[in-house]
């Protein structure tokens, strides 16, 4: 695996995910690379970011003298509000998630199966921190994009025939953006298709580290 191409970096993966944003979308971004998607919102596209602890319209990190302990995102980081922001309780927050009112969620993952199962919340034998809102998001949001490295730090493939880790959601994922390529499927009954490759990444490079079945 040492000569495997590196493909896109974190910011390029986030920028690719941002291309899926449409004007007027309400979007929930997970922690890590998904958070970077907010830095790449295309010109002319207005999106409203939801924070599952109870806010629509997440603003940027605050100025030092405007930090407010009562204003944080779901990652418990201080944030700021926008003129169009709204606050609500956790029950209302997940009513809009579970009820399918959020257009898009971008999440990280440890494993994705070829039928769209996602595993990203626990590793048996290791300390379990909990699923937080991830199970609600993958079950309720209209479109789920996973942004993740194509292989694990130890080189193991992450897009595989069947997940080995406990699931966060079954048949949930619509698009996978890795450092090497983009997979997409048109509905939850269809297989994933390889629709895009990072520069200097060949179909053979991808096939070599992707045990999951997909179409090209």
């Amino acid at each position: 695996m040492t000569d495997a191409p590196k493909g896109w970096d974190r910011n390029q993966m986030a920028a690719r995910a941002a291309q899926e944003l449409q004007d007027g979308f309400y979007v929930n971004l997970g922690i890590g690379i998904p958070t970077l998607v907010a830095n790449h919102i295309p010109d002319g596209v207005e999106v409203t970011l939801q924070s599952e602890n109870g806010m629509l319209g997440i603003g940027p990190f605050p100025y030092d003298d405007q930090v407010d302990a009562d204003l944080i995102n779901a990652g418990k980081q201080t944030i700021s509000e926008l003129p169009q922001s709204a606050y609500f309780g956790s029950d209302q927050s997940f009513a809009m998630i579970r009820g399918g009112h959020i257009d898009l969620s971008v999440l990280g993952a440890m494993e994705i199966s070829e039928n769209g199962d996602i595993a990203n919340w626990m590793i048996p034998g290791k300390m379990i921190k909990g699923m937080g809102g991830a199970m609600d998001l993958v079950a309720g949001v209209k479109k789920i994009i996973v942004v993740m490295d194509h292989t694990s730090k130890s080189g193991e493939p992450k897009f595989i025939p069947e997940c080995t880790l406990p699931l966060t959601g079954a048949n949930s994922v619509d698009m996978i953006i890795t450092n090497l390529c983009v997979f997409q499927r048109i509905d939850h009954d269809s297989p994933f298709q390889l629709i895009e490759r990072a520069p200097d990444v060949s179909e053979a490079d991808i096939a070599a580290c992707t045990p999951a079945n997909y179409t090209t």
Partner: peptide, 18 residues
């Protein structure tokens, strides 16, 4: 938790709120 002194029921965040 790991020593078994504490029992934990993990509940999805939205399910807990509801």
């Amino acid at each position: 938790y790991l020593s078994g002194e504490l029992e934990v029921e993990f509940c999805p965040q939205g399910t807990l709120a509801e």
